[in-house]
Amino acid sequence: MKYIKFFLIGILFGIVMSKAEIISWYRIYEMFKFQSFHMYGIIGSAVLLGMISMFLFKKKMIKTFEGKEIHVAPKKKGIYRNLLGGILFGLGWALAGACPGPMFVLIGKGVVSILVVIFGATLGAFLYGLSKDKIPH
């Protein structure tokens, strides 16, 4: 039962990704061509409101539903990791027109071929685990 809330939040995520056309390959292309404000508006407004959430968490004005303090664990540092990993991710994002969230939403839309992309992404994560000690971070 404790997982139902995550299922419901996931449903809302799937609906917003779909209805705002974030799962559309074309919207990602349009964004990288700087031909529409749509995606920039979405990410920008989400981040601005997200900053307010983070402020409230840090000031301990909002705690979890169980009353625990919310600590946002910092991301791993490393210029190679972030920049090279980011560039590789960006190449894939613009080719597939989908990042990991939208990939799953597209299954719900009935797009069979996205399963190949998801298989590739899982394989990519495995290959990262396999080679992580040999690549710069």
Partner: peptide
């Protein structure tokens, strides 16, 4: 399709996050 997926998966784990973890939460 496969190579696009591999780049997304490898890149996201190398960078330690994707659009949700880095662009939304991290920023």
């Amino acid at each position: 399709l496969l190579i696009a997926g591999i780049m997304v998966g490898f890149g996201a784990r190398w960078a330690g996050g994707c659009t949700s973890g880095h662009a939304i939460v991290g920023l």
